[in-house]
């Protein structure tokens, strides 16, 4: 498979018709002017590439050789956003030409991007560029699907399980293609691998909240209950885990907001208190949850319990957050 859209080398380029560019990088400074601040000593290679790139950019030449040069710049400096931007415009123009011989296609571009992504895991221009490509260059709406995007996302997250940009891109894709069917399994995989991976817990909440939006009230409740059970198992596994407790707390809030039966709501809270109490010696997050649940139940009636919990957090279990716990105590007064 060839993933080269552009087969040029520097030697093939006919630069005789490239207009010259005013080169600002070497200011013709007289001796009274100080040296340029934060000037980078460029390599010869880079200077040469950039000279051609700037010439083609400034003459708005949307050609295959321009496409080639953008790749050279990006490979030298992945964060060079001007090259990404120029590349995007070139592709848009060339794809519109529908030249069947030597076709420039979105597929080929995505293939190249996949490969580039694997070699530059920390670069994040890639993801917004990819988003623009899919949004703005697809000529036939059904030409692409989420399926095309899933493998590269999974590879990247396998390699760096908390990569913010990749998780964000996955959310964008899921929303864009309106396809949530792969997501529960995906979250399970990374929570099974590392129960402390907050990115996968947050992705799970993103999926859950979307499901809640599209479910009937009854489905909604059973979904939240199912998630509650799942989370309790994960807390059992590792009680001192802020991620699972934040998720659990959110589930209980959703139960409070989605039910109508006050009696049932109180029972839910009581149950959650009973659950959290099992960890009152092994998890400061359980203690924090307890204070939250008592407050939700009746902050007047359980004032003593709540106060005692915050005091314990201040003096024993989580003293570095004393300012926050004291603020919570002051709210009770």
């Amino acid at each position: 498979m060839s993933i080269q859209q552009e087969q040029y080398t520097f030697d093939d380029l006919d630069l005789s018709n490239v207009p010259p560019i005013q080169d600002n990088s070497n200011h013709k400074l007289d001796h009274h002017h100080p040296r340029e601040l934060c000037k980078i000593l460029y390599s010869k290679d880079y200077l040469h590439t950039l000279k051609i790139f700037n010439a083609l950019l400034n003459s708005n030449e949307y050609s295959k050789r321009s496409l080639y040069i953008t790749k050279q710049v990006i490979q030298l400096v992945p964060a060079y956003y001007t090259a990404w931007n120029f590349r995007f415009h070139i592709l848009q123009k060339l794809m519109a030409l529908s030249d069947t011989e030597n076709e420039i296609t979105l597929d080929k571009e995505l293939d190249w991007l996949d490969e580039f992504t694997l070699n530059n895991p920390k670069n994040y221009q890639i993801w917004s560029y990819r988003e623009s490509l899919i949004k703005d260059t697809v000529s036939f709406p059904n030409q692409h699907s989420l399926k095309r995007e899933l493998p590269i996302i999974e590879l990247m997250i396998d390699d760096d399980t908390k990569n913010y940009h990749v998780w964000s891109y996955r959310k964008w894709c899921v929303k864009y293609y309106q396809d949530y069917t792969n997501e529960w399994k995906f979250c399970d995989k990374y929570i099974d691998r590392d129960v402390y991976n907050n990115s996968s817990w947050c992705h799970r909440m993103f999926i859950l909240e979307n499901m809640i939006l599209v479910s009937t009230p009854i489905d909604r409740l059973s979904l939240i209950e199912k998630e509650t059970k799942y989370t309790m198992e994960k807390i059992d596994l590792a009680p001192q885990n802020i991620s699972s407790w934040n998720y659990y707390r959110r589930l209980q809030l959703l139960l409070l907001n989605n039910g109508t039966d006050n009696h049932k709501k109180n029972i839910n809270l009581q149950n959650s208190i009973e659950f959290a109490n099992r960890f009152n010696t092994t998890s400061s997050y359980a203690l924090e949850y307890l204070a939250f649940a008592y407050s939700a139940l009746d902050s007047q009636k359980y004032r003593t319990q709540i106060l005692e919990i915050y005091q314990c957090l201040v003096t024993k279990y989580d003293p570095i957050r004393a300012n926050y716990w004291k603020y919570k105590i002051s709210e009770l007064e």
Partner: peptide, 25 residues
């Protein structure tokens, strides 16, 4: 080492650090 004083009946030593070993830990 301090002694716990919360709602449980038997005092025991705090161990908030019991954790599962994963990539994160």
């Amino acid at each position: 080492d301090p002694i716990i004083q919360i709602t449980t009946s038997e005092p025991e030593v705090i161990n908030m650090c019991k954790e599962l070993q994963t990539e994160t830990t």
